[in-house]
Structure formats: structure tokens, C-alpha cells
């Protein structure tokens, strides 16, 4: 075969195109794309959920495409008729946006084997919750010998200059604001008392992180010693040797449901359903509850154990006493106004 410059060029371009658009080269087998969250969530889903799904569907193809909720919404919105994602995963705020913008398909509840076993808070025909994320107090046990017990402890004078919070861009920051508002007589509809409380916290605040992930760095660098924090994020930090501990405050830990949704107009509704069924099953949720994943289950058939039983709740009945679920429908109504207000008022 003669190698001309032209033929070399053609092959090079073809190779490049295959790299850029992998869809060209792959056979058009039926497969689904699951947009999970990045980091430890992806790891957990790849290790536990995907094998369970493949077993249930006799090795159907699945692609994990980890991305933020907002990116999922953006991608599906951009191609509604032929969405690049088949199953979405959302925190409560973005979930309502996705449902509101008509991007999701209602979950076929009647066909589901596990839906009825979910605790009431996790049941939602627009998309059931496959796990809870919980927010409580995190602190550095090397610096703070007596574990904090209440959100109120953040205002203690001995923590002056050592408190970290996040701004309202995150679910965590927003949930925290609502919770301290509630402590001071407010609610999801009225966070005025919460803003006043943060105002009073200002002298203690050492850092306002722009995202929850940054709190980890700040703990590690000794910039902060106490802050509101996500249970799962803390476990990752602990595993990496950072001196942090998590406690659920006596006012109850804040719980967010993370919901899973079939994307409207997906070409593989049955496979999407199979994936969600696997995610709801007690087998998968039970395995994900164990170390190192420590993901809080929503299926009542899962017996709580390990670190979760110790720190968060003994069983699903206990969850109701230990967790507070916030009304994100109400929160979403005013969230942009709060973010604006936070921008304006909270300058440390």
C-alpha cells in the first residue's frame, strides 16, 4: 500500500474525529447514560449500583457521566427531544427546577417493587429519593476537646475567629440558613432571623467558603475549627487522615433527599427504570450504607448499622426524630432573593 500524504492526512483526521465524537465508532447498542454526582458518589455508584443494574438487565450498557445538577439541567434543556442523559440525580433545589421545566418523566410507581418500602419523605412520583444527605456540625477534635452539641455552639465566644460557613450557592449553605432561622423563630418562608443570627456570628467567622468542598481545605489548613458540614464529605476527609468529626446537633441534623429522575424523551425508558429500581433495592442501599460509602438509605427494609447508626439514626423510625426535612418548594421561591441579600449583607 502506498502511503501518500493525503491518505495519511485522511486517516489522521478520521482518528481525530473518532476521538472527538465517540458515538461514530460505537455500535448503536441500547444503553443509558446516568448522570451521577462527582467524587465519592461516582465511585459508590460505579462499584455497587452499576453491577446490580447489569445483573438485573443481563449486562445492558450503562455510562456514568458525573456532573453537577446544573450541568445536567443545562444539557437536557439544550436537547430536549433527544437528551444526552437518560437518568438524572438531583439535590432538592435543582430537582424542583428540573420538574418545573418539564424535563422529567414521572416514575412508574405501580410497576415498582420497592417504591412502597421507601420512607414517606423519600416517596415522590416525580422521582424517588435514593439516599439522604445530612448536614450537622463538624469540628476539629484536636482543637475542640468537648464536642459541640447544638447549632448555638457556633456563637460561643471561645470559637471566635474559628468558625467557617459557606455562602448560599450550595444546598448546604441554604439549608443551614433556614435551620438557624427556624431556631430563632423563622421558617422556610421567613429567614430574617437567620440573617440576623449570621450577622451576630460575623465576629466569629474566619471564612465564608464559596463551596462546601472548600471547607475541607480550610479544616486541613487550620483556618477553621468548626463549621456546618455534610456527613458524607466529612467521612471522606476522615478517611484521608484529616482531624475532623461529625455530630448531629440536638436540634436535629438537616436531611436533604437526593432524587433520581427518568429524563423525558429518553430512548431507553425500561433501562432507566431498571437502574432506578436497582438504586432503590435494599441490596444496593444496604451495601452503600456500609463503609467506605456510608450513604444514608431511604428503603425501610435496610437495617441501619455501622457509623450511620452510631452518629445519625438507629433505624428509619429514629430518622424521623433525628432528621429535619426542609420544604424546598418554599425555599426555591425566595432563594434568589436570599442569595442577593447574602451577597449584599454578609461581608466579613
Amino acid at each position: 500500500m502506498q502511503l501518500t500524504r493525503r491518505s495519511m492526512m485522511t486517516s489522521a483526521l478520521a482518528l481525530g474525529a473518532m476521538q472527538l465524537f465517540p458515538g461514530i465508532s460505537k455500535a448503536q447498542a441500547k444503553r443509558i447514560v446516568f448522570a451521577t454526582f462527582t467524587g465519592s458518589w461516582e465511585e459508590a455508584h460505579r462499584d455497587v449500583l452499576v453491577p446490580a443494574y447489569r445483573k438485573a438487565t443481563s449486562n445492558a450498557e450503562i455510562v456514568l457521566d458525573p456532573m453537577l445538577s446544573v450541568d445536567q439541567i443545562a444539557k437536557v434543556t439544550a436537547a430536549r427531544a433527544n437528551p444526552p442523559i437518560d437518568v438524572m440525580l438531583h439535590d432538592p433545589g435543582p430537582a424542583l427546577v428540573a420538574i418545573g421545566n418539564d424535563l422529567t418523566e414521572p416514575y412508574p410507581v405501580d410497576k415498582s417493587a420497592y417504591y412502597k418500602d421507601l420512607i414517606a419523605e423519600a416517596q415522590d412520583p416525580a422521582g424517588p429519593a435514593i439516599f439522604f444527605q445530612t448536614v450537622g456540625l463538624t469540628y476539629n477534635p484536636d482543637k475542640i476537646k468537648k464536642p459541640p452539641t447544638s447549632w448555638e455552639d457556633l456563637w460561643k465566644p471561645e470559637f471566635k475567629g474559628k468558625v467557617g460557613i459557606t455562602n448560599l450557592n450550595s444546598t448546604l449553605g441554604t439549608g443551614f440558613l433556614v435551620e438557624i432561622a427556624r431556631m430563632h423563630g423563622g421558617s422556610e418562608a421567613n429567614v430574617d432571623p437567620g440573617f440576623k443570627a449570621i450577622e451576630a456570628l460575623k465576629p466569629s467567622i474566619s471564612a465564608v467558603a464559596s463551596n462546601p468542598g472548600q471547607l475541607a481545605t480550610l479544616f486541613q489548613q487550620g483556618q477553621i475549627d468548626i463549621s456546618p458540614g455534610n456527613f458524607n464529605a466529612i467521612q471522606i476527609m476522615k478517611a484521608r487522615g484529616v482531624a475532623v468529626e461529625f455530630v448531629a446537633p440536638k436540634e436535629k441534623a438537616i436531611a436533604f433527599k437526593t432524587t433520581i429522575h427518568i429524563v423525558k424523551n429518553t430512548g431507553a425508558k425500561d433501562l432507566a427504570f431498571a437502574l432506578i429500581e436497582a438504586a432503590l433495592s435494599p441490596e444496593v442501599q444496604g451495601k452503600l450504607m456500609e463503609s467506605p460509602y456510608l450513604i444514608v438509605p431511604t428503603n425501610t427494609k435496610v437495617k441501619m448499622g455501622g457509623e450511620i447508626a452510631k452518629v445519625l439514626a438507629k433505624d428509619h423510625a429514629d430518622m424521623k426524630n433525628k432528621f429535619v426535612f426542609q420544604d424546598w418548594k418554599k425555599i426555591n421561591e425566595q432563594r434568589s432573593a436570599w442569595i442577593e441579600r447574602f451577597n449584599r449583607e454578609i461581608k466579613v
Binding site: 450557592n169 471564612a207 465564608v208 467558603a209 472548600q214 451577597n343 461581608k347
Partner: peptide, 17 residues
């Protein structure tokens, strides 16, 4: 940090959050 607001962050906040 999160308490100082500049245009890139302002933009990100509006688009993303």
C-alpha cells in the same frame, strides 16, 4: 472566599445556582 463578590463569581452564581 465566598464573601467577596467579583464579576466572575456573580456570573457563576446567577447561571449555576
Amino acid at each position: 472566599g465566598g464573601q467577596m463578590l467579583f464579576m466572575p463569581m456573580y456570573l457563576y452564581q446567577q447561571a449555576s445556582t
